[in-house]
Design a protein around this nucleic acid. Sequence first.
DNA 1: GCACGTTCTACCATTGAATGGAAGGTGCAC
DNA 2: GTGCACCTTCCATTCAATGGTAGAACGTGC
Lengths: 246, 246
Amino acid sequence: MANSASGDSVVDRVVRVIEAFPEGATSLQLTELAGRSGLPLSSAHRLVRQLSEHGLLELGVGGNVRLGLRLWELVNRNSPTLALRQAAMPFMEDIQQVLNQNVNLAVLEGWEALFVERLSRRGSVANRARVAGRMPVHISSAGLALMAHQSRELQAEYLQQFHDPEGKVTSDVVRHLLAEAAQLGYAQLAGVVDPDTWGIAVPVMNGKRRAVAALGVVVPLAEMRLQALVPALQTAARGIGRQLRD
Amino acid sequence: MANSASGDSVVDRVVRVIEAFPEGATSLQLTELAGRSGLPLSSAHRLVRQLSEHGLLELGVGGNVRLGLRLWELVNRNSPTLALRQAAMPFMEDIQQVLNQNVNLAVLEGWEALFVERLSRRGSVANRARVAGRMPVHISSAGLALMAHQSRELQAEYLQQFHDPEGKVTSDVVRHLLAEAAQLGYAQLAGVVDPDTWGIAVPVMNGKRRAVAALGVVVPLAEMRLQALVPALQTAARGIGRQLRD
DNA sequence: GCACGTTCTACCATTGAATGGAAGGTGCAC
DNA sequence: GTGCACCTTCCATTCAATGGTAGAACGTGC
C-alpha cells in the first residue's frame, strides 16, 4: 500500500481509465470501469472524480461515467485529423456523387487502418457510426494500400511480427497482397468484412511522396467495376495529396 | 521544491497540458506549451513524454507536440455527442436541402453554446471547421434557444453572473431576449457574428422535456423569411427529439 | 569557423501527493 | 426486513512526482 502498488504512474492510470471504455460504449458503471482498467475501486473513483472536475469525464448520479463534452471539444477543435479530413472531404463527396458508393478515408495507426472519415452510400453523410473504427492491415483494402507504400523497413517489421489469430492467413499471403498493391497502385480485397462486398483503396501521397492516408470505397460485388472505380479513386487521391501540400 | 510546488495534482497538470493548445492549433513547441500551461519546462517535458508513450499526445522531432491520433480515436469512438449527432443528422440534411442554408447543432456547456455539428450551405458538408467551436449564450441564437428553456434556477444563476466584457449588453437585455425566445419558441439574433446575417435557432427537447440541444440556421439578411424558416426548424427539432427517446 | 542564444533532454535528492484497504452510506430486490 | 451490490469517504503510509541544474543539440549571425 503505497504510491502505486502496481508500479504505474498517474498518467498510466489516467490513460487506462480513458481506454477502459469499450468501443461504442458511451457510459460505464464505476465498478465496471474499475474492473476494466484494473484499478482498485477507490483509486478509480478518485481519478474519475478528479477528471470530472475538469470535464474530461462526466460522473453522473449512481456512478455513471462517460467521456466529457469538454474532452470532446478539446480534441475536436485541435483535431490531429482535421487538416486531412478537410483536404479530403470535397473529393470524397465527388466520389460519393459520381460512384454512389460508400467512401472512406483511413490512416495507418500501428498495424491497423484507422478510419478517420466516411460518407455512406445513400443520402450523403447520415451514417457516421464507424468513424474512428479500426481494421487490421491485412483484412482491409485501406490498410493494404497504406502498408504497401511504407518504407521497406516498416513493411519488413510488419511482416515479421504478423500473426493471424485465426491462423487462416500466412505472412507470405500478406507479402503477396502488399506486392500486388504496390505494383498496381491500388489494393483490393473481396468479401472479407461482408461476403458480398469488395473493398478497393488507393494511397494518398503527401508532398514528400509518403502515403499518409488511403482513400477507399466499399461496393457490392455485383457493382464491381474496377475500370470505373480505380481511375476515379486515383484522381481524387491525387487531388487530396495536392491539397495537403498547401 | 516538492510534489507540486503550485499545489495541483497530476491530473490537473495533464488537463492543463491538453487545454494549452489554442483553438485550431494542431501543434505546439514544447517551450511554448510549458509557458501556456504554466508548468516548469522539465515537468512539461516529462508529462508530454509520458502522454506520448500512450499516444494521447505525439512528440515529434525538435519538441513539436500535437494531440495524438490515439486520443482522437478514443474520444470519437465513444463520443459523448454521437447519439445526438446521429439522431440529428438526417434532419439537418433535410433542412439543408430544403432551405439551402448553413445548419448547426449546439449544446449548452457552461454559459456557452458548444457547436457539435454543422452542415454548410453549398455542396453538403465541406466546411467542418467550426465544429467544436463555442459562442457565449447571449450572442448566439443557439445559446439563447438553449438557455431560454433551462430551469428557472439555472437561468437566474446565469443572469446573476452575466457580464459582458465589452459592456455593451446588460443583464436586463439578455433577460428580455430569453423571455422572448421562451415565449416565441425560437430565438433570433441579427448581425452579431456577421453584420449581414441572421441566426435563428429552436430548442430540441428530449423525452423529459428538457432542452438538450439547439438546432439553428444562419441566413443572409436578404433571405430572411421567418415564416418559412421557423416551421421547418421546429418540425426538424421535434423529429430529432423523437429519435432521442428511442 | 566560432561564439552565442535557444530549445530540447537527462539527472537525481527531496518530500508531500497519491494510494487503497476499511468502514460507512445508499438504494434496490426479494 | 434483510441482504446485496454499489458508491463514497477517510486517513496513515510511502514512493512516485517534482523541478532546479547541467549538458546536448541545433540554428544563426558575425
